[in-house]
Design a protein around this nucleic acid. Structure first.
Length: 600
RNA sequence: GCGCCCUUAGCUCAGUUGGAUAGAGCACGGGAUUUCUAAUCCUGAGGCCGCAGGUUCGAAUCCUGCAGGGCGCGCCA
């Protein structure tokens, strides 16, 4: 964790009542900062020394103690001394600090800190006291983050391509909330382009079909899916044959609105199956109606960031047959690192997708301090232009809005190692609803988060339901169920319940487990900072591993079980530990939107 | 031709934003159970972190070049 160890404003003012909101790392970061400042006073470090690159992290090797800092290595140069000499001066200060049992110099100049056991016992008690709030952080300082995800076109039900982005966006939103941000979960409905006109025409076709007409094969240029049949029937019921033979202009807007609404109902139902609920559904059509794109264009023209110009034909590959140079209003995205300026309007005068999207991002920035978009990797080519647009628009407002586009790669569906063949024509097409019905919501969600989003992944229907350590979802839930089962049994058979009265008696093996659990708040902050919810999934797997390892000690030595019949004191302390581990597992799973089951 | 993403054990993947001897799972070898859920645990072997330079106390991580794989490349969305 880099300096400065920014505590919550309350703590910074010295009136720090909220020690519970501090992580172990911010607390001991403060200890190190104090020690370094003392060295400045002593003249060992120069007045202007920057602590920016000083880190405090858990060492990989447990024999290196509980915490390690690189302070001496980073500051040796400005102090005009060698790392070891500086480390010795720092160690003297640190050993006198509260909570630190010992400090040792190691390797090229690391300082390894071993903490008083009491620190871990306090942390254990804190988990229980904070319960669902353990891991919650004030890091985000309440800044407003708008996360836009899914935003599938309202032309049909959700397909697999949307699933991963949906889960990642939702988990990221929860993660940011836990890390102290105010999050808006937003969905952008593309209800204004040519696609929804096609949808309206397809609905009209089904409407005629519902009125008894033989429409034969669905012609090219229409959406063929059966999911449009109910809409045709609904419209036939509502309208009778009123628009059976009238000109398109008379029925299209109505059919479009109705069809989009029904499509959104389908999509929302799919999202609900995944446990996903957005706060805002933003309509592109409404954006146009409000004149937002015109507003953006006007402003950008004033800044000379939009001009009328002609694009060159693409180099390197043969230009399209019907290539014709046309003058269009272009956004100067090259000024922000894009390869080409981009049209915001089409030659027919209508807005391009980009033109509207640009205005949409401007609108989002009005009520958020920061924007995040989750996109499919097939849109990678358009990242630069939208980043350019946000940079242009938010700089103009005086306050640049941080903006991040997360690209989520495709998921390859497999079954027992073989790729699942999907063909829309044959109807052999797996929807999100099918997938959830087969393996369950928890499996879908967790599995989508067991790979970093920008890497392609496989989803094997056979593997994800396996009951083994090879299957992270199962393994983490198993650890939680095991804990719950133990707590139940302790109460039923022996009348033992968790108690912190004698946790000071717990030994090294228990402490190791507490140390892992104590990493959770740090993992939350690190994952939130990196915008990487998958880190929580990996952490939970590690925590489950430690729990199972500890649990297994009891197989060969009954004195090491959670429940030791002859020793109520010890049992209740261990049960207190078990309950705390269960709490951390639940808190982590909650971020991922996965249920922590009590039995399996 | 250009842009973006990826390349780590035989396979599938992590890697704490630049830290110490690069870690898990599967598969392979050896072990543990009259179990509080063995659907588990312990242990062994397995590596040119794609290749070559650079930056510095220190690089899988940052920069440059090259190779291989994926995605995209006029007004679609």
């Amino acid at each position: 964790m880099p300096f400065p160890f920014s505590l919550s404003p309350l703590c910074a003012n010295g009136a720090c009542e909220m020690t519970d909101m501090q992580t172990l790392y911010t607390a001991f970061g403060g200890t190190i900062e104090t020690a370094l400042k003392a060295l400045v006073t002593d003249g060992v470090l120069p007045e202007d020394a920057s602590f920016k690159n000083v880190t405090l992290e858990p060492p990989r090797d447990p024999s290196h103690g509980d915490l390690a800092t690189n302070a001496a290595m980073v500051l040796a140069k400005p102090a005009k001394t060698n790392p070891r000499a500086l480390a010795e001066a720092l160690v003297t200060k640190l050993e006198a600090a509260p909570g630190i049992a010992s400090a040792a110099i190691a390797g090229p100049g690391f300082i390894n800190l071993t903490l008083d056991p009491q620190v871990w016992l306090d942390e254990l008690a804190a988990i229980t006291a904070l319960a669902d709030d353990y891991g919650r952080s004030t890091m985000g300082k309440g800044t407003r983050v708008n996360v836009e995800y899914v935003s599938a076109n309202p032309t049909g039900p959700m397909h697999m391509g949307h699933c991963r982005g949906a889960v990642v966006g939702d988990a990221l939103s929860s993660l940011l909330e836990l890390a102290g941000h105010k999050v808006t979960r937003e969905y952008y409905i593309n209800d204004a382009g040519g696609q929804v006109d096609t949808l309206a025409r397809s609905a009209h076709l089904r409407y005629r079909e519902a009125l008894g007409e033989d429409i034969g094969e669905i012609p090219e240029g229409y959406y063929p899916g059966d999911y449009l049949k109910p809409i045709g029937e609904y419209l036939a019921q509502e309208l009778g044959d009123k628009h059976k033979d009238t000109p398109e202009a008379e029925w299209l807007p109505y059919f479009r609105a109705e069809a989009v609404e029904k499509m959104m109902d389908l999509i929302k139902a799919d999202l609900a199956l995944l446990g996903i609920h957005h706060d805002v559904f933003a309509s592109e059509a409404a954006l146009h109606a409000a004149g937002k794109p015109d507003e953006a264009e006007k402003w950008l023209r004033e800044q000379d960031l939009v001009y009328d110009g002609v694009l060159e034909a693409p180099k390197g590959k043969a230009p399209p047959e019907d290539w014709e140079p046309v003058e269009l209003p272009l956004f100067r995205s090259t000024k922000f690192g894009d390869d080409q300026d981009r049209p915001i309007k089409k030659s027919d005068g209508k807005w391009t997708y980009f033109g509207a999207d640009l205005a949409y991002h401007m609108q989002k920035a009005e009520s958020a301090d920061e924007l995040i978009d989750i996109w499919g990797a097939d849109h990678a080519g358009t990242v630069k232009r939208i980043k350019a647009a946000v940079a242009a628009l938010s700089e103009g407002k005086g306050k640049p809005t941080p903006f991040d586009v997360k690209l989520v790669q495709m998921v390859q569906l497999m079954r027992g190692g073989e790729p699942v063949k999907m063909s829309k024509r044959s109807g052999n097409f797996i929807t999100i609803a099918d997938m959830i019905e087969e393996v369950g919501r928890d499996v879908v969600r967790f599995t989508m988060l067991t790979r970093k989003p920008e890497a392609q992944m496989e989803f094997d229907f056979a593997k994800v339901v396996e009951a083994s350590k090879d299957n992270p979802v199962w393994y983490v839930q198993y650890a939680h169920a095991r804990i719950q089962s133990t707590l139940r049994k302790a109460l039923e058979d022996e009348g033992f319940s968790p108690s912190s009265d004698a946790i000071a008696d717990l030994g090294d093996e228990e402490h190791a487990l507490i140390k892992r659990a104590a990493q959770f708040p740090r993992e939350v902050e690190a994952a939130a900072k990196a915008r990487e919810p998958h880190r929580i999934a990996f952490y939970l797997y590690d925590l489950a591993t430690d729990l199972n390892a500890f649990y297994s000690l009891g197989n060969t030595d009954t004195q090491k079980r959670f429940i030791v019949k002859q020793d109520a004191r010890l049992s209740q302390s261990r049960l207190f530990l078990a309950a705390a581990i269960g709490q951390v597992l639940r808190n982590g799973l909650r971020v991922l939107g996965v249920e922590a089951v009590d039995r399996m």
